[in-house]
Simulated scan of single mutants.
Amino acid sequence: MSRTGEIVLGVISALFTIIAIIGLSILVVSGSAAMQDESVKSEFQQQILNDPTFTGEEAEMVAQFVDVLPDMLSAFGWGFVIVLVISLVLNIVGIVAVTKNKKPKLAGAMFIIAGLLAGIISLTSILLYIAAIMCFVRKPPVQFAEEEYYKTV
C-alpha cells in the first residue's frame, strides 16, 4: 500500500516549518538589534514622556518596560524557534516512519505532536493533522489465502 499522500503532506509541512524557523530567526535577531539601539529607545521614551495621557509614574513604568522588552522578545522568540525545530524533527521522524508503510501508527502520533508544536491552527499543523488522520484511517487491503495461491502459480 502506497503512503504517498502522507509523505507529501509531511514534506510540505516540513518545508513550511523550515521557512517559519528561518523567518522567525531573522525577526528575532533584527528585532532585538533594533530594540537595543539607544536612539530608538530614547525616541520611544521621549514620545511616552510627551504623551499627555500618561502620568509621570506611568511614563516611568513604560520606560522601564522598554529597557526589559528586548530581552523578553529575544527569549520568547528563541524559545519558539526551538519549539519549531523540535516540531520539524518529529515531522521528519513521522515521514521516515510512514515510508514504505513501516509504522503508520507511529508516524500518525509524530504528525499530531509535531502539529501541536507547530501551532494549533496554523497551515502547517492542519497539513500534519490530515496526514495523521490518513495514517490512522487507511488500512492495507485484505488479501485472502486463495488470491495469494493463484498469484504464485
Rank of each mutant, 00 (worst) to 15 (best):
M110P: 14
Q143P: 06
A114H: 05
V81H: 04
I82T: 02
E58L: 01
I48W: 02
V142C: 15
D67Y: 12
E60Y: 08
V8L: 07
L9S: 06
A114P: 14
G108D: 08
I7E: 08
L27S: 14
A59E: 00
A63E: 01
A132R: 05
A131M: 09
V98I: 15
L123S: 04
A75N: 02
P70Y: 07
V28F: 01
V98R: 05
I26L: 12
I19T: 05
T53E: 10
A14T: 12
L73T: 06
P52R: 04
G31T: 03
K102Q: 15
F54N: 07
S87H: 08
L9D: 00
F111R: 05
M1I: 00
E146V: 04
M72H: 08
V66R: 01
V93P: 10
Q64C: 06
E58S: 05
P104K: 15
L27V: 08
Y149A: 15
L127E: 08
A75E: 02
I7N: 05
L15S: 15
N50H: 07
I95V: 14
L27M: 14
A75S: 01
V83P: 11
W78S: 08
A107K: 13
I22T: 00
G94S: 10
L106Y: 13
V68D: 06
Y149K: 08
V40W: 09
E6R: 08
A33D: 15
I7F: 13
P52Y: 07
M61W: 01
V153A: 08
F80L: 04
I12H: 03
F136D: 00
N50R: 12
M110D: 10
Y150L: 15
T152G: 12
Q143A: 11
V83L: 10
S42M: 05
A145K: 13
I82V: 03
G108C: 13
M134S: 00
N91L: 06
I95N: 13
I95S: 09
G77L: 10
P70T: 09
S39K: 11
S42A: 09
Q45E: 14
I86D: 02
F65W: 01
A34N: 12
E43M: 11
D71A: 05
G94E: 04
M134T: 00
M61H: 11
L27N: 10
L123R: 02
L90G: 12
L69E: 10
I21W: 00
A118V: 14
G10P: 14
V93L: 13
T17E: 10
V89A: 14
T152P: 10
S74M: 09
V8N: 11
A75L: 08
M35N: 07
G5M: 02
K102R: 15
Y149W: 11
Q47K: 06
I48P: 07
G79S: 14
F65Q: 00
I48S: 12
L117D: 11
I48Y: 08
I133W: 00
Q47F: 07
Q64H: 09
V89R: 15
V83K: 03
V142K: 15
E147F: 14
L90T: 12
I26M: 02
G56Y: 04
M110N: 15
E43D: 13
G10W: 12
S30L: 15
A63T: 05
G31H: 07
S87L: 08
I18Y: 03
D37K: 09
G94D: 10
L106I: 10
F76D: 01
F111L: 04
I126M: 03
Q64K: 13
N91A: 09
F44Q: 14
S32D: 06
Y129W: 03
D37I: 07
T55Y: 11
